[in-house]
Each structure stands twice: as structure tokens, then as C-alpha cells.
Design a protein around this nucleic acid. Structure first.
Lengths: 147, 147
DNA sequence: AAGCAATACTATTAGATTAGTAGTAAATAT
DNA sequence: ATATTTACTACTAATCTAATAGTATTGCTT
């Protein structure tokens, strides 16, 4: 699983929606302004999340986005996959070997690492992330660092 | 840890050197031809491996490359890092949060996954990979698939 | 019905990264 | 000397990422 800016933005948008669950639609403009994310870019990101069924939306005045289900029922990996896609090992150049039917020891290890990563993202829910971020925001002290 | 074509090529070159350890220098041309890798590109890859101290080389007739130490003493992760570099979480756009001293819950999870991945690559040695590839090459049967 | 305010969608673009190519320099065996 | 191989630098094409731009559509308000 990779994590680019797009996924990172999407997570923070989702955390914001989790925070404000039950309080009506949240506009892209609000999220963009609050976290310094391009609103046009965020628009695309929110569309992907909607197409993945993770959020719902409404247009027009008082329009905006909200979570399609409780934050505890949304796995972090669902968010990641909807924005970054599944990483394909096959995108790598194939190494031709004699017989051309052989598997690749390197890709086996790579797949193990992907599997480990997938498991971790599967274990976390959006509710976990939102709760953790709440803690980090309020208890940030000397030991913290910027990212 | 990411794995691109460059790393994949480098691994197979190293596996070939491991196979032929003690048999004198191996030329880029041989490896390139055998595995269908651009020789010029492989040249750059081998240089990175040499600069990382994983292989040694000699020029001219009968020149080529050989492992700088036994395959069992070379970790897969050393190969990966020398070719792909360490992945920097900081390359992601920072999300400004109130106080601007706060950490990011999303990046914490991401770092967990990277750590898990690093551990796996650390556990494998080049000797492991070479041995495993040997098995895959010779015992490739019905269940195998191409990558 | 009119008009404003928000999302929906499509297309385009700039920058970064990856993969590969080209050409010259330096070293080594014969 | 000369052929052969790696060493190094520079450039290029293709792909991916992060945006930007503009139009269409929907829904609320008056």
C-alpha cells in the first residue's frame, strides 16, 4: 500500500467528517481552508470517496459531504484503496527465466511485505484514526515533531 | 520500502552473482542478455551496488562484478536501500493543524507499515533469495504463474 | 420561475520520478 | 598498442502526481 498526498488529504477529510458526523453536510471549502488543501483537488478526492461508497453528498446551498456509515465501520484500508488503488506487483518488468514459467523469489518477499502492510491498514478504522488525531491535537507537547 | 524495476533488476543481478560466487568476475553483458535487462541501465544499477559496498568490480578484458562478501551476509534490505533509497514519509504534503506542533495519526500508521516492511526485508539475506530462486526455477510446475 | 450555491464531471497542464539511451573516459588483459 | 570492459556524466521519453480550469448539474431560497 502506498500513501501519496492524495491519500493523505483524503484521510484528513474523512477524519473531519468523522468528527462532525451527525452535524449535517460539510463543504469542501471548509475542509480545504482548514487543512490548506486545494479545493479543486479535494473535489476529485471526495468524488473518489463517494464512488467508493464511503461518503454521501448533496449539492446546492447547504450541500456537502457526510460519512455513508459510522466511522467505526470504515476501515483505513478502504479509504486508501479508494484513493490510491491496489498496488500491482505486475507493474514491474518481468524477469525472463528459463522455462518462463518460474516464479520470482524477489516478488514473493515483496508480496509478503504488501500483505503485512494491508493487514495493518485493515486493523485500523476511521474511528481509531479520528480518536488518535484528537489525542495528538490536544496533548501535543515537547516531544512532538512536525511532519 | 518500495520496489521498482530498478530494484527488481538489481536483485536478479545480485542473485546471479551469488550463484556464481568464486567463479570470477561476471560481466554486465552476460546478466543483461540472460535476464533481458538493458545493459546500459544495468551499468548504473551495478555502480550503485558497488558504491554501497555490496559488490566489487574490475575493468577491461575479463573484468566484471563479484560479491564483496558472502551472500549470507548481505541483507535483502541493503540491496533495496542502495537502489531505491529509504522512503521518506516527509515527502508528503504536511497537513497544517492547530498549534502546528501536532503529529499526524495517518502518518503514524504509515510508519508502522513501513517498519513492518523493513523488518521483512531485513530478515532475508541474498543467500535466502538465491536458494529460493533455485527452487522455483527447478521445481516450477503446474501451480506456477508468470510475473 | 429565477438565481445563487454547492457538487459532478471532463480536460488540460506542470513538475517529479522512473526507465532508458548516448557518448566519452579510464583501466586492464593480451 | 589495442581490444575489452567498467566508470561517469548528460540527456530523453514515458509515466505518475498534483494540481488547475471550465462547464454542467442539482438543490435551496426567494
Amino acid at each position: 500500500m502506498k500513501l501519496t498526498t492524495k491519500g493523505h488529504y483524503g484521510f484528513h477529510a474523512m477524519i473531519e467528517l468523522a468528527r462532525r458526523q451527525g452535524q449535517g453536510p460539510v463543504m469542501i471549502r471548509e475542509i480545504g481552508a482548514r487543512y490548506g488543501i486545494s479545493e479543486k483537488y479535494l473535489e476529485q478526492i471526495m468524488r473518489l470517496l463517494r464512488q467508493a461508497g464511503l461518503v454521501e453528498s448533496s449539492r446546492g446551498t447547504r450541500g456537502g459531504f457526510w460519512l455513508a456509515k459510522p466511522a467505526a465501520e470504515i476501515k483505513a484500508r478502504e479509504i486508501l484503496v479508494s484513493l490510491e488503488g491496489e498496488r500491482e506487483p505486475r507493474s514491474l518488468h518481468p524477469i525472463p527465466r528459463k522455462g518462463s514459467r518460474s516464479r520470482c523469489a524477489v516478488l514473493e518477499v515483496w508480496q509478503e511485505t504488501e500483505e503485512a502492510s494491508r493487514r495493518l491498514w485493515d486493523q485500523k478504522t476511521l474511528a481509531d484514526l479520528a480518536a488518535r488525531q484528537e489525542v495528538l491535537d490536544h496533548v501535543s507537547g515537547e516531544m512532538d515533531y512536525n511532519i
